Amino acid sequence: MNDLEYQTMGEVEQDHWWFKHRLSKVQKVLRNESEKKKYSFNIFDIGCGTGGLLFELKKNDFINKASGCEPHPIGFEFCQKRKLSVQKCTLNNLKIDNEIYDVVLCMDVLYHKDIDPIESFQNIKQLLKPNGILILNVAALSCLKSSHDLNVMGVRRFNLTGLRKLAIKNGFIVNQLHYWNTFLTPLIYLKAKIDYLIPSLNKGKSSVRLPNKFFNKFLILVLKIENLFQKYINFPFGTSLFLVCEKR
């Protein structure tokens, strides 16, 4: 991810519609699993960016301890300002001192150019307790590739079948896997095509900048409505894939 994207994300992620909805999805899973297992979790966030997700999760009583890692200097600096327990490193050179976790978060990391998805799944397994939970979000569908992918150094997008096979092949039991941000996908597809045809439109602009206040609230509402439908419908597409799986 380039410096502009990190700086912008650190400034807007606590208000931005997309980040707020992703947070709510993670919180819901963690709350339900904590109630089921009847204890609070030690969690680790891989590539935690500017730390917004960890910062918000720490406020919940179902979290006992929250830590993570982030290699980018701007992201790491934001994490330090938020007083988060974060190592400045990648998953590949992480020092864990034999500590293992109840839950590992991997939010929009697997698409990065420096990441090997298979190796990442194996490293994540080493971080998790037996029956530990992996919560993963990743960019979906190659047809949606846009200037955003270039800005965040994303070189791959996943489909549902491929991500399921990847998780199972690497020793995980899939509990939940679905596309999300489905309702907005046609608009995002159209924007991706415009970006491709007229690349100068977004030159020098962050792709995660905050929309105006009214539009931001409207997009939050759209995703809340989508969630209601998602209880009854498995959407066949979306801009992101959300995976919850368990270490065998």
Rank of each mutant, 00 (worst) to 15 (best):
S85L: 13
E77I: 02
I43A: 02
F55A: 11
E5M: 09
K81T: 07
N42D: 10
W18F: 07
V12S: 05
F41A: 12
Q14E: 13
L110T: 02
L54S: 01
L54N: 05
D114L: 06
L128H: 04
A139H: 13
S34L: 10
D102K: 04
V12M: 03
S120V: 04
K125T: 13
S24L: 11
K113L: 11
I118T: 11
G75W: 00
E35H: 11
S85D: 14
L105E: 02
Y6W: 06
D114N: 07
N123G: 13
H72M: 07
K20Q: 15
V86K: 00
S120C: 09
H21E: 05
P71M: 05
K25F: 08
D114K: 10
M9A: 05
C79P: 00
F19E: 03
E35G: 13
S85T: 11
E11A: 02
E77R: 03
V86T: 04
G51N: 01
A66I: 07
L94W: 07
A139F: 01
E119G: 13
L128F: 06
K20C: 15
N60A: 08
Q14G: 08
L127A: 04
N131D: 15
V26H: 06
F44W: 06
L110K: 01
G52P: 04
F19N: 01
Q126H: 15
T8D: 02
E119F: 10
E99T: 13
V103A: 15
R31S: 14
K125S: 13
A66L: 06
S67K: 09
L54M: 02
K125Y: 09
L84H: 00
H21P: 04
C89H: 07
K38H: 15
L84V: 06
H112Y: 09
K83G: 14
L141W: 03
E119Y: 14
R82E: 01
L30H: 09
N137Q: 12
E56W: 05
I96E: 12
S120H: 10
V86Q: 05
T8G: 05
L141Q: 08
Q126E: 15
R82I: 01
V138T: 12
P117F: 04
I46K: 03
V12A: 03
M107D: 09
D108W: 01
F55I: 10
E119I: 13
K59C: 14
L134I: 06
Q14K: 14
E119H: 13
E119L: 15
R82P: 00
W17V: 05
S34W: 04
A140K: 03
Q7I: 14
H21C: 08
K113H: 12
E77H: 01
K37F: 09
H112P: 08
N42T: 11
M107G: 09
E33Y: 15
V109K: 00
F76E: 01
Q27Y: 13
E5L: 03
V109S: 00
N64R: 11
K38Y: 11
S142I: 09
S24Q: 10
Q122E: 14
R22W: 11
L141T: 05
N98G: 11
S34F: 09
N64Q: 14
Y111T: 15
P117M: 06
I133F: 05
P130K: 14
A139Q: 10
E35L: 14
F78M: 00
V103G: 10
E35A: 12
G10R: 03
R31D: 11
N131C: 09
F55Q: 08
E99P: 07
K37I: 13
